[in-house]
């Protein structure tokens, strides 16, 4: 496959807030973490102070596999600020750990090889004190379903 490296958008970084800082800094050791309920096991993202399923408050960040699949994606062509922007891929990823456990992110792949349903895994881009979880296609696999 010809290596057309997809571009990355201009970034405005997230503010590290009390409930979200763990998520944005999780990549420092190479692992993605998601908040999980210690009572019923429900994974919760975005982080919330109580479990929306059982309402328990025993929630803690826990490592996830970093694997998921592309639920949908778009290639942005429009420059939303003055100046040019290279097309980039914005996508919604469902993590393997739970149905409808979604992350919005960028998929670093040439748009013409991307398909809804393809498996991806996490990679991190560090900027200042933030490790942005981005995704890349799992090599050699195609869309299933």
């Amino acid at each position: 496959m010809t290596a057309i490296v997809s571009s990355r958008p201009p970034r405005k970084l997230p503010l590290l807030e009390p409930d979200t800082a763990f998520f944005w800094t999780s990549g420092a050791d190479g692992h993605l973490r998601i908040l999980r309920c210690g009572h019923c096991g429900h994974w919760q993202h975005p982080p919330l102070p109580r479990c929306p399923v059982c309402h328990g408050d025993d929630l803690a960040p826990q490592k996830v596999s970093g694997k998921g699949r592309v639920i949908s994606f778009t290639v942005n062509h429009q420059a939303w600020t003055d100046g040019q922007v290279d097309p980039f891929v914005f996508a919604v990823i469902e993590l393997d750990e739970q149905r409808e456990l979604y992350l919005f992110s960028n998929v670093l792949a040439a748009p013409d090889v991307l398909r809804v349903g393809i498996p991806v895994h996490v990679t991190f881009e560090q900027q200042e004190d933030v490790w942005l979880p981005l995704f890349v296609p799992v090599a050699g696999e195609n869309a299933h379903g």
């Binding site: 970034r11 997230p14 807030e17 429009q78 914005f90 942005l132």
Partner: peptide, 24 residues
């Protein structure tokens, strides 16, 4: 300088317009 609240889940990835979300 930074984005907070619910926008923090999308804006850092370049989705600064509702067009990006509805394109999904």
């Amino acid at each position: 300088a930074r984005v907070d609240g619910n926008n923090a889940w999308t804006v850092p990835f370049g989705a600064v317009s509702p067009a990006n979300m509805w394109a999904l």
